[in-house]
Computed example of a mutant assay.
Amino acid sequence: MDGTIRAASPDDVPAMLALMRELAEFEKLTHLFVASDESLHEALFGVRPAAEALVAEQDARVVGYALFFHNFSTFLSRRGLYLEDIYVQPGLRGSGLGTALLQRVAAIAVERQCGRFEWSVLDWNQRAIDFYAKMGASVLPEWRIVRITNDALMRLAKAE
């Protein structure tokens, strides 16, 4: 692998946000992308951080990232680590940076005695599915993501 993996710093926010936009384009989800430098900075480095991130650098340039946070399993009665995003720029895929990011987050999960390390993958992204399987991950076909946002979230919150 030609590059380094390190914890993200506040100075990395603009580069990470640019990579997040690239990911939204790749996933054809730019219509949902509303993150800003300010909101990402607050989420990662604010008074009460919601997530953590690692960045992959090559030639002193941020070219990938992994963003993760803790969740909890009632069945295990232990916290887990959820990988929200892992992204490496297309020209550097296959360089080992994605593997290194995934391994580093897995090591953090082990260090913190997490019971699980989980993430989601789009069903059409076969290259990613194959990559994850090669790393030892299982895609769970019986589970579906359930999501409620925007107006529907507001309506549900008001229902008592």
Rank of each mutant, 00 (worst) to 15 (best):
W124F: 04
D123P: 01
A18Y: 01
R116I: 10
F45I: 10
Y65T: 08
G115H: 07
E22C: 14
R21I: 14
A50C: 11
L17S: 13
L140E: 14
F69W: 06
T4E: 11
F131E: 14
Y87A: 02
V88K: 01
L54D: 00
A157V: 08
A43F: 02
V110N: 07
R104V: 06
V62S: 07
V105W: 00
I108D: 10
D2G: 10
P49E: 07
V62A: 02
L76W: 10
G91T: 11
T149C: 07
W124Y: 08
E84T: 01
S36V: 15
A35M: 03
S36C: 06
I148W: 07
N150S: 11
R61S: 05
A159P: 03
A51W: 11
S36Q: 04
A8I: 01
D151S: 10
L140R: 05
P141I: 07
E22N: 09
V47C: 04
L81K: 00
F75Q: 12
Q89R: 15
Y65N: 05
A133E: 09
E111I: 08
A18W: 08
D2A: 12
L23Y: 08
A53M: 13
R61W: 01
L40H: 05
A159K: 15
M135C: 14
L19Y: 00
V13C: 14
R147K: 15
L83W: 03
S39M: 14
S95A: 13
I86G: 04
F45G: 08
G64I: 13
M135H: 10
W124H: 11
A100Y: 04
F131Y: 06
Y65K: 11
G136A: 01
R93G: 08
R61C: 15
A51V: 11
V105N: 00
I5G: 01
F45M: 08
D85G: 07
A43H: 03
D37R: 11
Y87E: 00
E57D: 15
A157S: 15
A53T: 04
G80F: 04
S138I: 11
A100W: 06
A60Q: 12
Q89T: 13
V13R: 01
L40Q: 09
